[in-house]
């Protein structure tokens, strides 16, 4: 092998490793950012489940003071059952799953807000430590959902921007990665119920 051939081979190998390195780094970057989105989504679901689990206790306490109709509890139970089907901790595929989750979130928020509004008419209930404890736990879950949503959207923004830039755009296309959906606030609830006194 001549000196020139050896030189060409050497640079060829270096170039190969450079390109491979870039491709691997880019692919890993896409995967990492994709996982961050999945993780953030899971946090949203976890905290929504937490809020769903607290709701029946809240209803029972409010019922004890406000003497609600039984149907209110049935409607909440139905909301929980319906919501639980969607909270499967699977990775969100697309717009449909995100929209469903958003609707469930809105329904949850509406339900608890109505219960808290009703509680304002009952000073004894408002002063009850059990009620106040539950209220703080539910508000805590809602706040965690809000933070998780913000982080989810940050992760999506980061991912979407990344796969639009070179060379990630090419790698994303090759590997089948597409832009992800943002979590938008819903105007109307998927299912809400009115609490009657």
């Amino acid at each position: 092998m001549t000196k020139g051939e050896r030189k060409r081979r050497f640079f060829g190998i270096v170039f190969f490793f450079m390109i491979s390195g870039i491709l691997v780094t880019t692919y890993n970057g896409i995967v990492t950012k994709d996982e961050m989105i999945n993780n953030a989504y899971a946090q949203i679901e976890t905290n929504m489940q937490r809020e769903l689990d607290l709701l029946p206790n809240l209803i029972k306490i409010v019922q004890h003071y406000a003497q609600y109709e039984e149907r209110v509890l049935k409607e909440v139970t139905a909301l929980r059952t319906d919501a639980s089907k969607h909270l499967t901790a699977q990775t969100p595929k697309g717009q449909k799953e995100i929209k469903e989750l958003s609707k469930i979130n809105k329904a949850l928020k509406d339900s608890t807000m109505q219960l808290f509004m009703v509680a304002e008419n009952y000073p004894q209930l408002q002063a009850s430590e059990n009620f106040l404890e539950l209220q703080s736990q539910i508000e805590g879950a809602q706040n965690r959902i809000n933070v998780a949503r913000m982080r989810y959207n940050d992760a999506v923004r980061d991912f979407n921007a990344y796969i639009r830039t070179f060379p990630a755009n090419m790698m994303a296309k090759m590997a089948g990665y597409t832009q992800r959906e943002y979590f938008h606030a819903q105007e109307k609830a998927h299912q809400s119920f009115k609490v009657e006194l």
Partner: peptide
């Protein structure tokens, strides 16, 4: 880090 825990 904080993920929104606490109370107001």
């Amino acid at each position: 880090d904080s993920i929104g825990a606490g109370a107001k």
